[in-house]
Amino acid sequence: MGSTVYLGLPLMAILALLQTAVFPRFPILNIMPQLILLAALAWGLLRGVTEGVVWAFIGGFMLDMFTIAPMGLSAVSYMTAVFTVVFLQESLPSSRFFAPLIMAGIGTIIVALTYQITARLLGYPLILQTFIHLPQTILINMILMLPIYWSMSSLYNRLRPRRVHL
């Protein structure tokens, strides 16, 4: 797992920069895609729950560097989403197409709920606007999930070549 942490750190830093500095300039349907969540989800679906949660932790904290919201709020919600989704995936039939799409949708809902609940517990008001935009966010995340999942899959295959039995 050690090597994937070293990989996750720069990757999540780049994605956090993209999410805060680049994508706000080009909003799709007035929504910012959650790249870090998608990358962590994809890695979790490929490598298992532990590595997925570690990536979600790293990515969440990277994102929290750019917000005035309490540090760790994004990390908690991303970790919850990745953990739940990867856990759910194990009980569903595997598919390289449908599984990532469904998991991206479920993950987005879990993140929105967890984030709002945790923020509410920390004394922030409930922002209903998040839930109004939730369908668009789910749609954007689902669309972006496939290229991200396939990119991660190709990265994974390069890192760990298949073992050949002679």
Binding site: P24, T67, L73
Partner: peptide, 13 residues
């Protein structure tokens, strides 16, 4: 140079 990614707060960088 950046915007807050959080949904519960409003800030810019």
């Amino acid at each position: 140079i950046g915007r807050d990614p959080s949904a519960v707060v409003q800030s810019i960088i």
